[in-house]
């Protein structure tokens, strides 16, 4: 089945990024397709590449890069929400991109299921 995933909260402050990651990993292992992961609201902070989380904890940013680069999942941060929060091209983690709300619309139409984490 085709799943689309929307994440609305920033990393670490809320568990949403962790739950979304664990959900996506489980969905992939069960053979489902992830059409796209879309970050909105403070969720866009998930793609910023300036963070240095402590090494004895999970690296939320590295996990998205792993999904984007290694698993080829399309990971998009909303451009309008990114501009508001100082997240911009050239300062984002590998395996992700910044684009418009049309990407959210498109994945919602295409997927069998949209699930939001927030």
């Amino acid at each position: 089945m085709k799943f689309a995933v929307q994440v609305l909260r920033g990393p670490y402050n809320n568990q949403a990024s962790d739950t979304a990651y664990n959900f996506v990993k489980a969905a992939l292992s069960k053979g489902h397709e992830i059409v796209r992961i879309f970050f909105y609201h403070d969720g866009v902070i998930n793609v910023n590449n300036l963070a240095e989380p402590p090494q004895d904890d999970r690296n939320i940013f590295a996990r998205w890069t792993e999904l984007g680069k290694d698993h080829g999942i399309d990971i998009v941060a909303c451009i309008a929400a990114s501009k508001r929060r100082g997240v911009k091209e050239g300062h984002i983690i590998e395996g992700t991109r910044i684009s418009g709300l049309g990407q959210l619309t498109e994945m919602t139409i295409e997927a069998d299921r949209l699930i939001t984490f927030g």
Partner: peptide, 19 residues
Amino acid sequence: TIYSYEGLETVLIMAAFEQ
């Protein structure tokens, strides 16, 4: 929170896509 406002922005985009 900004949720309601950014939510409205999404509604307008999806409306432009004639959903």
